[in-house]
């Protein structure tokens, strides 16, 4: 397998050709915040906009989940322009996410808490007011609960349900700010012929999908 070397935050790294910068960094213990990536072998989703890095020679920060490594590439994950974007993206996500960690089923295993800790970002948005939705919680399924208010629209559950399990129970509904993950015609999960594999629950990085 062809390998090439690159530098991330001053650290020299060897990576396979064709690998994306995000995975090369993570494998070498360099944290890049990310929510929506389903793994190296899937096509990048590109929705969370948290994994920006700066690549020398490029004018603007690029999403590391879609950027392939090249030989001699110099990557920085914490420059001012990167942090400006990532901070704003995180703040935007948190402005629609209720901060009720203590009651949340994902407390202490939540990707948002991880990002906040690793990046030193406050959970509560500093600049933006919170716009919290008040959507009904779907408690119909016997094994898990879906709370759309906690959802960050990373699309992992949709990806797994459609591409891995191939059940196609979950997809995105509506457009704009009110976009949400849901079933066909927004029916309750219990009526959606879900095969209860719970893969979506395992994949959820926050507390939106949780076991009962």
């Amino acid at each position: 397998m062809e390998t090439l070397s690159l530098t991330i935050n001053g650290k020299e790294i060897v990576a396979e050709k064709g690998k994306k910068v995000l995975w090369a960094a993570l494998e070498n213990g360099i944290f890049i915040p990310h929510l929506c990536s389903a793994g190296e072998n899937s096509l990048p989703f590109g929705g969370c906009r948290l994994c920006f890095v700066e690549v020398e020679g490029k004018k603007e920060p690029v999403a590391s989940c879609t950027e392939e490594v090249t030989d001699g590439m110099i990557v920085n994950t914490r420059t001012a322009s990167v942090l400006r974007l990532v901070r704003m993206a995180f703040e935007l996500i948190m402005s629609r996410h209720p901060i009720i960690c203590r009651e949340c089923p994902a407390n202490k295993k939540c990707a948002l808490q991880d990002i906040s800790r690793e990046m030193g970002f406050k959970l509560k948005p500093k600049k933006l007011p919170q716009i919290l939705p008040d959507l009904p919680v779907d408690d119909s399924h016997s094994l898990f609960t879906y709370n759309p208010n906690l959802c960050v629209l990373c699309g992992l559950c949709v990806y797994i349900c459609n591409e891995i399990v191939k059940e196609a129970i979950l997809d995105f509904n509506f457009r704009g700010f009110i976009t949400k993950v849901g079933t066909f015609q927004n029916r309750p999960l219990a009526k959606a012929k879900c095969n209860s594999c719970l893969k979506c629950v395992e994949a959820c990085p926050v507390g939106a999908l949780s076991r009962k």
């Binding site: 590109g46 929705g47 906009r49 948290l50 935007l92 995105f172 704009g176 700010f177």
Partner: peptide
């Protein structure tokens, strides 16, 4: 379309 954070939430703000 609601896919990415900036467009979905940023435009709302």
């Amino acid at each position: 379309c609601g896919k990415c954070t900036f467009c979905r939430i940023g435009t709302k703000h």
